[in-house]
């Protein structure tokens, strides 16, 4: 189990940041992702794996009128 934005979320082996975003249906383009406080560059979402027990912060910025 991991924590995503303060809520528990099931973990599985090889889970990447991109997979979390897909599972959470986080489609907004302006995101800031941190794993246990460490910033993950947007270009690395597909390759960065998330360890079991991680605290994942997916910060959505704002846009629109």
């Amino acid at each position: 189990m991991i924590t995503v934005n303060g809520s528990p979320h099931p973990w599985h082996d090889g889970m990447t940041v991109r997979k979390i975003l897909e599972e959470k249906r986080y489609t907004f383009p302006l995101l800031v992702v941190r794993i246990d406080g460490r910033l993950v560059p947007r270009s690395d979402y597909g390759e960065t794996t998330v360890p079991d027990g991680a605290d994942v912060d997916v910060m959505h910025l704002m846009s629109g009128g």
Binding site: N5, G6, S7, M59, H60, G64, G65
Partner: peptide, 18 residues
């Protein structure tokens, strides 16, 4: 009107302002 503040993501999704 939302032009004073649009805080839905910060509040509801990010859980940043509990």
């Amino acid at each position: 009107q939302h032009d004073e503040a649009w805080l839905i993501f910060m509040d509801m999704v990010n859980n940043r302002i509990p």
